[in-house]
C-alpha cells in the first residue's frame, strides 16, 4: 500500500503493518514519520529495537538471522533498517524479499531510505513492500506550501502569527524544515502561547549575539548614543565576551582612521572606500561618522581601546563594561568632549 504522510495516522489506527518503508530527503519529515511508527509500535509492546545500517559492507545475512532468532524475554522487536543509498543491491533485494516472505509475528521491519526515483519504484523489493506493508514516500514541502505548513506548526504549539510573521519564518528557514521547527519551538519557549508580532519573530530568529554586535557598531557609527548604549547593556546581559565587542569597535576605529587619512591626502570619500574595500551598504555609515569624528578624536578613541584591552586582560584596574560604554559613546560622538574634560 502506498500512502501519503497525512494518511499515516489513520493507517496506524487500522493496525500495524509488518513492514514500513519511509522514503524521503527531508530529515525532519522522515524522522517524524519514523518516530510516529516507532511510538505506535512501542505502545503495542514492541519494546526491543534492532538497528542496522545497510552500507556497502553490510552483511545481509544479519537481517535474515533476525527471521529465526527468538528473544528469551519474549518481547516484540522493531528492526530498523537504514539504506542510505536507497539501493539495496541484488543480494539486499533478495534478502528483503526473503524476509518479507517469512516475517516472524513478533517482529516488524522499518526501512528508512532517501527519495526513490521512478526506476527504483519499479524494483521487486519495493513492489513486495507495497504488497505486504506500507510504502510512505515523503515529498519536500514546496515553497508555496511552506507558509501553510508553518501556520499549522505554529498552531500545534499554541502560537499564532500574521501572514507577515509567517513570511519572515518561511524566508529565513526555507529548505531547512529542521531549522524551521526549531525556531518555532524556540518561539514558544520565548514568548509562551500567544499571537506573535513580526517584530517578535524577527528578534528571536537568527544568532542573537552576532546580530546585535553588528547592530551596536551600526548605531554607534550613526551617532545614536542612546540606542548604542542600550544595545551594549543588552549584550552584557546576554553574557557576550567583552573582548569580542572591543575587537569589533577597534576594527571600526582603525577603518575610520584609514579612511580619514586617505581623505586628508586628497582622495574623495568614494575613492577612499574603494581602496579599502568598504561595502557599498556600509559607506553611508562611515560617511556619517567621519562628518562627526576628527582625526584627534579617533586617535584618542584608539588609545581608549588599548586601555580597555589591558583592563580585560587584568593588566590595568577598572571596570571593563564602564570603559566599553565610554568608548561606545566616543564613537557615537556625543560625549567625547566631556570625557576629554575629565582627563
Amino acid at each position: 500500500m502506498k500512502i501519503n504522510p497525512n494518511q499515516l495516522q489513520a493507517q496506524l489506527q487500522q493496525g500495524l503493518s509488518p513492514v514500513y518503508l519511509v522514503a524521503g530527503d527531508d530529515p525532519l519529515l522522515v524522522q517524524e514519520a519514523r518516530d510516529k511508527i516507532v511510538q505506535h509500535a512501542q505502545n503495542l509492546g514492541y519494546s526491543e529495537r534492532q538497528s542496522f545500517q545497510a552500507g556497502t559492507d553490510f552483511n545481509w545475512d544479519t537481517l535474515l538471522a533476525e527471521i529465526s532468532s527468538q528473544s528469551l524475554f519474549s518481547s516484540k522487536t522493531i528492526i530498523e533498517l537504514r539504506i542510505p543509498s536507497g539501493k539495496p543491491g541484488k543480494i539486499g533485494s533478495a534478502a528483503i524479499e526473503t524476509f518479507l516472505d517469512n516475517i516472524p509475528r513478533d517482529k516488524m521491519l522499518l526501512i528508512i531510505a532517501p527519495k526513490l526515483d521512478a526506476t527504483q519504484q519499479k524494483t521487486k523489493w519495493l513492489k513486495a513492500i507495497e504488497k505486504k506493508g506500507v510504502y510512505l514516500p515523503i515529498w519536500p514541502i514546496e515553497k508555496s506550501n511552506l507558509p501553510g505548513w508553518i501556520k499549522q506548526r505554529l498552531q500545534r504549539e499554541g502560537l499564532r502569527a500574521s501572514p507577515e510573521g509567517v513570511g519572515i519564518l518561511a524566508d529565513q528557514t526555507q529548505g531547512n524544515l529542521l531549522a524551521c521547527d526549531q525556531e518555532i519551538t524556540k518561539l514558544r519557549l520565548l514568548y509562551g502561547e500567544k499571537q506573535l508580532s513580526p517584530e517578535e519573530i524577527n528578534e528571536a530568529i537568527g544568532d542573537h549575539a552576532r546580530f546585535d554586535l553588528y547592530q551596536l557598531i551600526d548605531q554607534a557609527l550613526l551617532g545614536d548614543s542612546e540606542s548604542s548604549v542600550r544595545i551594549l547593556s543588552q549584550l552584557q546581559e546576554s553574557g557576550i565576551e567583552p573582548i569580542l565587542i572591543l575587537w569589533s569597535i577597534t576594527r571600526e576605529i582603525r577603518q575610520l582612521i584609514q579612511l580619514n587619512s586617505l581623505m586628508t591626502r586628497g582622495e574623495t570619500f568614494d575613492n577612499a572606500c574603494n581602496k579599502l574595500f568598504v561595502w557599498k551598504t556600509r559607506q553611508p555609515l562611515y560617511q556619517k561618522a567621519l562628518r562627526r569624528l576628527t582625526q584627534p578624536a579617533l586617535t584618542q578613541a584608539l588609545q581608549q581601546a588599548s586601555e580597555i584591552d589591558l583592563k580585560i586582560k587584568g593588566l590595568q584596574p577598572g571596570n571593563v563594561w564602564l570603559a566599553l560604554n565610554e568608548l561606545t559613546l566616543s564613537l557615537a560622538g556625543t560625549t567625547l568632549a566631556t570625557s576629554e574634560e575629565k582627563c
Binding site: I67, S68, S69, Q70, L72, P104
Partner: peptide, 8 residues
C-alpha cells in the same frame, strides 16, 4: 542454563 530455540 536456558537457550531460546531458533525459528525453523
Amino acid at each position: 542454563f536456558v537457550i531460546m530455540p531458533l525459528r525453523l
